[in-house]
Design a protein around this nucleic acid. Structure first.
Lengths: 332, 332
DNA sequence: TAAAATTACTAAACCGGTTTACTCAAATAA
DNA sequence: TTATTTGAGTAAACCGGTTTAGTAATTTTA
């Protein structure tokens, strides 16, 4: 049973392909196609297991019913969970999801987006590695629907889904302070993006509110492309300080996971002395020593908002502004 | 700068679209297009930032340069890691990757595959929820390229990538035995698939080799659609046995993660008394109590083989037989 | 010098849908 | 009875590529 096209059905039914197209799209009544003809066409379609060729449909409609999901690393459970919910939400709206990993590499990201545009993908949901607006705009281009999440850029009108970075950083820091810590380190990723800056500000303000003075040398900035070695170096540097850090706030889960690993494998005798708090949850935080108090991002909400906002752009050409969702703190 | 088509370029250059197509596909010399004309066309294309419309190309060539990746749950790190490597390997061959989650639901899986076929996706890489050959065959259909991984079906000529289930099960069981355990439970997923049966056989044979008699009531079969509650019930049942289990072999990582969670939250006083071994690694196994000895699947190799085998089917119409890769045991 | 081969290029069909602008016959309204 | 509306359907353009079969002019060969 070879693939059957609308032309073949038309031929078998003895009508024009126009008629077949109308009927198969449920516009038979509207287009005044007689019931008898409609039934005949539907019957032939069913018997031959007709499925419209999406590619042809896409070409004709100028729409691929596909959205792109572009992240640094789909194997990071944070992105994995969002991917899952994106797919679920997209499917409900008739869209499929194409994924790609940037590895935090802006030139790879550019290529991916070029490719997705060539594929006529209707829009993308993006945790971008770009560092400023210009970069993003030259990459994505004007008039191409996209929604940012996780990271967003300063001074834009772009739609993005973020979290309450500032408040979450404060909450996490306050928990460490309440546990009695005075020397609280900060492991951040090198970035000038607002989400990171907001988190840093939350950390600083929280210290200030508790009359703990902020020290530059408690802050470690790690290159997102070399997190493994960056964290390892930072940890050993930190441990060898004369007045050592007793708690650390991590600005994302990859930093935290690497730090836990480094502490456990290289400096196991330090692991009981430290308290960790981290953005993004990981299952292993339930069991690791140090235990990690974490800020769980609402991945399902993020995904749903992202898909809805993207579809709003695609279908209605309306660009919603950014929103910030609340995290849930999991104290451990 | 609106999108530019091959027609527009032809118009601007004053040549036919045929010529433009030849030149842009690098077939200018072969097709005896003069250098002057070639340069002119290339120049116009560059200046207008021409990118071929993939959809049109797909329709014409009958090929979408897209592969589908269909798994129960993309947010499971095991599948996430494979997804990442699949994308990398696919991209090298000019393919993009579309993902979908089945949630272990065969009817959802059927719909996904129907949809992917309608989208003219060239082939799929599939960890199927189907339970037999007939089901798979009616779902996927004849002549549609696909590669199975993780799970495969009995008595087929299908290409699949698996692991050495039998030997891995033996190795894991032996490690538990060597630690002195005599009452070793088995947490399995309800399934008649060879990969599960092989694992069970490895477990049984390993017991036999050490003169430990196999007991049916040490085996818990859990419905893959309700793992959370299934594991919870099994754990409490197990703990209330008169002669309790002291170690458990888990046949996949979801079972293990749920069991660790149940033990830690519901029966924390039992957690030091148990030893776990599990198929598939999870980062949290490094830190959880019970520690888990695990069999890490070579996700990059699995992904590479899967993509290569699929492309062999797509491009050369050759169906490679199944292969089984070795796992690496991580003792903890 | 006529026939054959080469160079440089093109018209048009095709992929499989959607959609606009008609046609023609029958039924209804004026 | 004629004009108008409605019913039932179609031809053909279009989306943007690829590809086959060809043409006309020039060059080479016999």
């Amino acid at each position: 049973m070879a693939k059957i096209s609308i032309n073949k059905i038309a031929e078998i039914a003895g009508v024009s392909k126009t008629t077949v197209s109308f009927v198969l799209n449920g516009r038979g009544d509207e287009k005044n196609i007689s019931l008898k003809t409609q039934e005949k066409i539907l019957d032939i379609a069913k018997k031959n297991n007709y499925k419209a060729n999406f590619i042809a449909r896409s070409l004709s409609l100028g729409k691929s019913f596909t959205i792109g999901f572009v992240v640094p690393d789909i194997s990071n459970p944070f992105f994995g969970k969002i991917a899952k919910h994106i797919e679920t939400a997209a499917e409900k709206k008739g869209y499929s999801v194409m994924v790609a990993n940037t590895n935090e590499d802006i030139s790879k990201e550019t290529n991916i987006i070029e490719g997705f545009k060539a594929r006529q993908i209707d829009g993308i949901i993006l945790a971008s590695a770009s560092i400023n607006n210009n970069q993003l705009k030259t990459m994505v281009g004007k008039d191409y629907p996209f929604v940012l999440f996780d990271r967003f850029l300063p001074d834009t009108e772009d739609s993005y889904i973020g979290i309450n970075n500032y408040e979450t950083a404060q909450q996490l820091t306050n928990i460490l302070i309440k546990k009695g810590h005075k020397r609280i380190g900060l492991f951040s990723v090198t970035s000038f993006l607002p989400n990171i800056l907001e988190r840093i500000k939350g950390y600083k303000d929280s210290l200030k509110d508790s009359n703990i003075k902020y020290c530059d040398n408690l802050v470690y900035e790690i290159d997102p492309k070399n997190i493994k070695s960056g964290v390892k170096n930072a940890i050993s540097q930190m441990i060898n300080e004369t007045d050592p850090i007793t708690a650390i706030l991590f600005l994302n889960n990859v930093l935290t996971a690497e730090a836990i690993w480094a502490i456990n494998t290289i400096y196991p005798d330090h692991k009981e002395k430290l308290d960790f708090a981290s953005f993004d949850n990981l299952d292993l935080f339930d069991y690791s020593i140090p235990r990690v108090t974490s800020a769980l991002q609402p991945s399902e909400d993020i995904a749903t908002y992202a898909v809805n906002m993207l579809c709003d752009q695609i279908d209605n050409n309306t660009v919603n502004k950014g929103i910030q969702l609340n995290t849930s703190i999991i104290e451990r």
